[in-house]
Design a protein around this nucleic acid. Structure first.
Length: 222
DNA sequence: CGCCAGGGCCATA
DNA sequence: TATGGCCATGGC
């Protein structure tokens, strides 16, 4: 199915179903853009509940200055509950060093071309494709679609042939959806929320918004 | 007890 | 370019 813009409408259909069920979730769950950056790193292959514990350990001092001034051992100890703490302490240092080039100024980053900033992030230690896009979208409100494991799983189950590698899936979403920061923001949040809310054991859980679509390939309703 | 979570790096072929 | 080992906590 294509519309007048020659877009595949399946993604939009999923979006509308999820939005009707969950509404606008107002992501990312963080108080400041810098907290988004930290959370994006800490949540790598880690449950959000563990990230929350790590964030809480900063107390009222979760700022780029705090991270820049902390020594590595101390920083690792603060973020311990999020797992991989030695690596992630280094990653936080690296991304904070990157942010320092902009004097920790969000509008300064936003005034740069998205692809330029994205390239800088991707060349930063610990910032891969998903983390870079999460930071761009949720910390800086720049229009880039965040692809994660849930996104791939959802498309595989539905099914939608988006291709396999990150860049291809990202291009598919961006090419078949309204290209706006707000839209990307809400949609990614819906995908993650839906995944976390769904059971993993039953073939089809009660109240799943995607309902009948979930029967494909058993076991996963998310 | 084992499995897994909103990845990414690095070595290897 | 494509796998595989590795990193580590906490919930279930």
């Amino acid at each position: 199915m294509v519309n007048s813009l020659n877009r595949d409408t399946k993604l939009l259909s999923i979006y509308e179903t999820l939005f009707a069920h969950y509404g606008n979730l107002h992501w990312w769950p963080a108080k400041t853009p810098y907290e988004v950056i930290v959370g994006a790193v800490l949540t790598q292959n880690t449950t959000w509940s563990n990230v929350e514990k790590a964030i809480a350990n900063f107390g009222e001092d979760l700022s780029p200055e705090t991270v820049a001034n902390a020594d590595l051992i101390e920083l690792a100890e603060i973020i311990r509950p999020s797992g991989f703490f030695n690596q992630k302490a280094n990653y936080l240092k690296a991304v904070t060093t990157w942010f320092a080039k902009y004097d920790y100024d969000v509008p300064a980053v936003r005034s740069e071309p998205l692809e330029k900033v994205r390239g800088e992030l991707l060349s930063t230690k610990g910032i891969g494709l998903e983390t870079a896009d999460a930071i761009l979208l949720y910390a800086f409100d720049l229009p880039t679609f965040v692809v994660d494991a849930y996104t791939i799983r959802l498309c595989g189950r539905y099914p939608i042939d988006t291709g396999k590698d990150y860049a291809t899936v990202k291009a598919y979403f961006e090419g078949n959806l309204p290209q706006s920061t707000e839209f990307y923001n809400i949609f990614h949040a819906l995908i993650v929320m839906n995944a976390k809310a769904r059971c993993r054991k039953k073939p089809l859980c009660e109240g799943c918004p995607l309902g009948e679509r979930c029967k494909k390939k058993g076991n996963y309703c998310r």
